[in-house]
Amino acid sequence: MTRADFIARLRRGLEGLTAEAAAAIVADYESYFADGRRAGRSDEELAFALGDPKLVAAELRLEADVANWQGTRARGAAIRTVAGVLGLLALDGLLLLPFALVALLVAASFASAAVAILYGAFTLTFGLFDEPAGGVLAAVLNGIGRIAGGIAGLAVCALLTGLLADGCARYVRTHRRFLRPRAIPPNTAGNSSHE
């Protein structure tokens, strides 16, 4: 994400604040980028360290609403504060939704692969030691087929688990709520840019 992208998204997220309040916040982040550039960091790296501008904006807006509520005790401010918290939760929820879906998919695939293997093993042993309807060979082939299908299913599960882990890693890095640990940009891991 470029500096302009980040600032544009931040500005959009700050709608609802007074013009002066939004401008002061935007100026803060502009100066963060300016100072970061002077320290030799790329815009990409700086935006990465800040996290998702939509969330940053939601938190700042919430901060303003809380201050307003504590200052005025006005009903409108209270409603905005609650709406802000719900908004943040919704943002979190929306961000989490894809992971929840993939996690569900992974769990379902694991379960169906396990069932296929168990059922295959059952058909196989049953076919060997009993007199199945279609003959021993058919039962054995049927069992082997199911087991192979189950193993293929497990491979798909491994793939999905990898995707899920990648997604979670990206989530953890881009989604910096208050006090989430600092993101270490991929190309500068280990050497700090702080002088």
């Binding site: 360290a49 800040l50 901060e63 840019s193």
Partner: peptide
């Protein structure tokens, strides 16, 4: 950047906190 380095926290955290 100082606090990100010393106590490993998100840099974006500071601005709302300062406000």
């Amino acid at each position: 950047t100082y606090l990100a380095q010393e106590i490993d926290m998100g840099e974006g955290t500071i601005y709302p906190l300062m406000r």
